[in-house]
Design a protein around this nucleic acid. Structure first.
Lengths: 124, 124, 124, 124
DNA sequence: GTGGTCTAGACCACA
DNA sequence: GTGGTCTAGACCACG
């Protein structure tokens, strides 16, 4: 693992990846995450960067840390249940806003999207 | 003019606005843009920021600078004709990619979007 | 036993509990405490943590360790007699100091506290 | 400036000080704070530590940062108006909780506090 | 000049 | 072993 975009801080990109792992059930409620140091080695990144990622996710009530034991996915399943929905809402919100700024109206947006998806692109 | 979002550099937000002016034909091919200085005053922004905006748009072949005369919208109409379409494609591409990563399939994406737009949010 | 706050080290929370047991006479002067091992099992905690708790209370002359025999509440009753009063004084001192730094005067402090306690919060 | 307690991270102690400056009106709404580097020199601390302080306060909507311009006290006066009250509530909450754990009832708490304040201690 | 991010490496408290 | 904090120093984007 070595590749990150430049448009967004690494620690937030990692946070996004972890959110996706949780949403896709590859990380389940209560499960332990790799230690900061292991994570840092795996992603070839400084431990402080992982630390920031974990802190951010803890601030969002997605992870919890237990002193001296490690970092875990929260056990509060409502938090996680919402996560998928929240991420989706955020994406849609951003998308609609940009399209709106470009002067597209709702019907045009949906049509454009349908046209795109029907071509099968993006879902090979 | 004084309000900018914080999530995106001001110079790019200004670039977006200029693109929109072009797409909506308020700025036509070959037309002269205000000087950096005037722009800076109008948007209440540092001239360096406008400078960056113009550079960015030049890099995208949307503007051209003629030394001693000012900055103009390109005369190469093909560049402009496609602009709206290109911007739209980019947005859709990014959106679909993100949704796909979160495990949504095409139908779910369209449904989610319709649900969102029907509620009227984002288009008050 | 499994629940601890996260804002304060577990070993100090345990020390507080033991102090309370002494103040409330559930542990009397000279009485023997459970072994570190038993305590650790009872509280479902690492033995090192109990070790620290006992050390801390020894440092405060509340417990004494007799080699080979175990850990006991001190027999010096003056130490214990004052305990409740000392703890209270410490709390009040800290509280008043913080409120003072925030610019509250004595009357405001008492009023604020009364207002809070009358609402019944904190004493459900 | 060189002295910090050890019981609490420096960056949070600095955050507390800044909150007090705001509550006591020594820092007013919209006012610019010293740059991270200047602050770091003044408190004889690493710039990263100040950075954390500012980030934390921004997360609490007390400070805002303007790209390339600096860090400012928020102009949203409601946020600041609440601040004094919030800090007070927090202090009272902590205090009452500790006293409660020690077995004091509301009347005893108020009496103890009054006794303490009447002696004039803490308000020389 | 401003804040934001990142690395390298250290030390500490906690379990 | 774990996470949390801090320093030192670097580079970058932004205005």
């Amino acid at each position: 693992m070595d590749e990150f975009d430049t448009y967004k801080p690494i620690y937030l990109q990692l946070a996004d990846r972890i959110k996706l792992l949780i949403v896709s059930q590859e990380l389940k409620a209560g499960e332990k995450l790799p230690s900061i140091r292991d994570m840092a080695i795996f992603y070839n990144v400084n431990p402080n960067t992982i630390q920031r990622t974990y802190s951010e996710l803890e601030r969002e009530d997605i992870l919890v840390t237990k002193r001296g034991q490690g970092t875990f996915v929260t056990e509060q399943k409502e938090q996680l249940a919402d996560l998928r929905g929240i991420l989706k809402e955020e994406q849609i919100l951003m998308f609609v806003q940009e399209m709106k700024e470009m002067g597209y109206n709702p019907d045009e947006i949906i049509l454009g999207l349908q046209h795109y998806l029907k071509k099968g692109r993006g879902y090979e």
